[in-house]
């Protein structure tokens, strides 16, 4: 078996050169990184201002029910009438949104997906189709965003201004 003996001086110089080489490689890699990416971004200060708590005052005025001889189309389950000229919002889709279609019926192609709580102006309807009542809706600031929607997921909003 061949056995080599290295002098302590050669061994020390070799180790020193290896450390220097590793240091140089590390320095080159570090300097090649873009400074912006290595800079740590501070976490911003987050503040949530709570909404004022509503205080409900119970009403004690008596309610009198008078039977009406006229019938009104009541849709959306809110007691508000959907008709041409009112603003409605999409509601009750559980965040899934509502398909607005090219015509009043489920056989018509969906044009786009209205978002939950999105506001539209009623431009036409009601029309019956596929067992549902439909209204033609148009986004107030984008007339290209329009289509027929099922009334079940629409709710009249109080103000005429969205």
């Amino acid at each position: 078996m061949i056995r080599r003996n290295f002098s302590p001086l050669v061994l020390a110089v070799s180790i020193g050169l290896a450390i220097a080489l590793l240091g140089a490689i590390f320095a080159i890699i570090w300097s090649s990184l873009p400074q912006g990416e290595t800079q740590l971004m501070p976490t911003p200060i987050l503040t949530v201002i709570p909404a004022p708590t509503a205080t409900l005052t119970p009403s004690v005025s008596p309610i009198s029910l008078t039977p009406s001889a006229t019938s009104t189309l009541m849709v959306g389950g809110t007691g508000n009438e959907i008709q041409v000229g009112v603003y409605v919002q999409i509601t009750g889709t559980g965040g899934d949104g509502l398909r607005l279609r090219a015509g009043p019926g489920t056989e018509n192609e969906p044009i786009f997906l209205g978002r939950e709580a999105e506001v539209f102006l009623v431009k036409d309807g009601p029309k019956e189709g596929s067992g549902y009542t439909w209204f033609f809706l148009e986004a107030p600031y984008d007339t290209t965003r329009s289509g027929w929607a099922v009334a079940n997921y629409l709710q009249v909003i109080a103000s005429n201004e969205p």
């Binding site: 987050l46 986004a139 965003r145 969205p162």
Partner: peptide, 16 residues
């Protein structure tokens, strides 16, 4: 261009 009405979908509960 989308307008959203005031509803639970447009009310923030918390921000993190």
């Amino acid at each position: 261009s989308v307008r959203m009405a005031e509803s639970p979908a447009t009310k923030i509960r918390n921000v993190e």
